[in-house]
Design a binder for these strands. Structure first.
Lengths: 343, 343
DNA sequence: ATTAGCACTCAGACAGAGAGAGTGCTAACG
DNA sequence: CGTTAGCACTCTCTCTGTCTGAGTGCTAAT
């Protein structure tokens, strides 16, 4: 545990480094004026903090830089996640006119957060798997092609074109769609596969000749897993950060951002609240120079999405955590209202 | 006009520079063996070519580098757009199984082209404006919200959620959708706005009380212009190019790529065939270090999309132009087949 | 017309010097 | 005994000069 003076000096070093991105020396801290001891004393405290693992040197006679462990301590002990001005009302204002759609709200939120923080924002859409099917539609485009459309109670629309099985004629297709709609209405997307059991198949067989092939075919086309949608804002903000004045790091950042599925996996977070992952705390090698801060937002009592900020380990943790907290709350409010409105 | 020897040397210089990205000197060309004169002679030819504006020096005693004008000459006179092996059959093979959708084909094509060339591929979806509406659907999500879905004959699905006007009740909504479907079926997306004239409004008013507000409202929600979809592949390929070992250039590249609308504007090309834009030939400042090669593909006789390659001005023009030509032809074939299938 | 030879130019790599920022240690002080 | 001033030491960074190699343009000879 750190004593009061150590804490004060530690905080001062972190603040300065976050500001300047330069190793900070004892003189700088002493000159700040808010700590009334000499540079020499500060030096000995710094040596202690280094021994404890909270600070590092870049070379033997350089100033100090916070270590990952140092940031961890800072985040755990010195950051207050609750902002004074509780409500942002940013999103609320933007969607005030009433015409909006879910995707817009989310994308806009990502961009706002990027602008406010100058980091990269990544939002994971809510698990559409928990959304409930309210309509399945198949529209024929031609003799052999059609487009299938799934609509969920969250307003999510999913579609895919496909080639119709040759044995399926128009009236059979209609019957099939009717039966499917009747049986699958209100079922969560994740449970659609379960519902496609033998009972349903028998039912279909009664009305449609040669149902086997069509059934298998449609099953495959319609109900295979869809990747979760990722909303990214402010990718180029990363280029502003001085620590990425390094081609190697930028390269790894951009190749990381192209692997959307990797990122989605990384972010999927089930427990509520804010979670901070600093540098190597993340198992992914490419993330070693980054800090990822994730928070959750709720769409209703069951459905939840993740909103995250990605930046260098040297981050304005205090500001960022407060903002993320406030924004995810606001997103929840807005989406909850929207969703509630529906029932 | 260049004489035969000048042409040979010019070609040799360009080829070498495209290969190595280094200024090329007289000795290198002389040592290649395919030109049987001494380095001194080559030097004097080089001096001539420089005077004509086809070559440049990076400093007073450096080797030569092709100028923009040089590339232009090369592309106009020394590149043969027709490949020996005419057909690629790459896309055809990939979609051989028959289950596919339009977006998949396009995205896959973009990635294939990037892999083959190591440059960045950008594909503009076909102008959906020319596609014809085959179905308009509005599904209620709750008392006050609904999702509208437009389906075109190309299998394109567009949707947006919105808040219902309070004066519109369920049966009126249904009537309205029916009328709109009847009147708008087969109309091109670009001409939807024209069709929403007073005649239609009068018709609606006959069946729906207080049609005015609902009408204006839906009009705004449904028929405002949608941005064209951009399919991008191999963005990180740009990082491999040695000329982008420069943070400044990379920065401008990535900020450019974030302005999707700018890019779309840049690419929209109405005339058929291949078009090469080298460096400052493009009016956009950010494009000054890049060459953009665009080609068109056809979806049917009216609808057309653009497929483009973006790379450094030092590009393998010969290979790339042949590939792009072949690939856009193949895309046209594939999509044409798919589309024809429908009629 | 072509070429060999030569003087000249410039970028890039390398080494050494000096300044500046910072540290750790020690001895003195209140 | 904690704090501090002073000092030697370390390391980075920048500047400078030197050298080398690649390349050029010019000229005189073939």
């Amino acid at each position: 545990m750190l004593n009061e003076r150590q804490l004060l000096i530690f905080q001062s070093i972190i603040d300065d480094f976050i500001e300047t991105a330069q190793p900070v020396g004892s003189k700088v801290i002493a000159d700040k004026g808010n700590i009334d001891v000499s540079a020499a004393t500060i030096r000995s405290v710094m040596a202690d903090l280094e021994k404890m693992g909270y600070l590092e040197k870049t070379h033997s006679s350089s100033g100090r830089v916070p270590s990952e462990q140092g940031y961890r301590y800072y985040v755990d002990h010195l950051v207050n996640p609750y902002s004074k001005k509780k409500d942002l009302n940013i999103i609320k204002q933007i969607i005030a006119d009433g015409v909006f759609e879910f995707e817009q709200i989310v994308q806009t939120s990502a961009e706002i957060l990027s602008d406010l923080t100058n980091y990269t924002t990544i939002i994971l859409g809510p698990e559409i798997l928990e959304a409930k099917l309210i309509k399945l539609e198949i529209v024929k485009l031609s003799e052999h092609t059609a487009v299938a459309i799934l609509i969920t109670d969250t307003g999510h629309v999913e579609h895919r074109s496909f080639t119709l099985p040759p044995t399926l004629n128009a009236s059979d297709l209609e019957k099939m769609v009717n039966i499917l709609n009747e049986k699958l209405n209100g079922v969560a997307i994740s449970r659609l596969a379960d519902q496609l059991n033998t009972e349903l198949f028998t039912l279909l067989s009664m009305y449609i000749k040669d149902a086997g092939q069509s059934y298998e075919y449609l099953k495959e086309v319609l109900f295979n897993e869809e990747p979760v949608k990722l909303y990214v804002g402010g990718k180029s903000n990363m280029l502003i950060q001085p620590e990425f004045n390094d081609l190697q790091k930028m390269h790894s950042f951009y190749t990381l951002m192209e692997r959307e599925d990797e990122i989605a996996k990384l972010f999927k977070q089930t427990n509520k609240g804010i979670k901070v992952t600093i540098g190597n705390e993340n198992s992914l090698e490419a993330m070693k120079d980054f800090t990822l801060i994730t928070s959750t937002y709720a769409l209703d009592d069951e459905q939840m999405g993740t909103i995250a900020l990605l930046g260098p380990t040297r981050m304005r943790y205090n500001k960022v955590i407060q903002l993320l907290n406030a924004l995810s709350n606001e997103m929840s409010d807005v989406l909850y209202m929207w969703y509630k409105n529906k029932k």
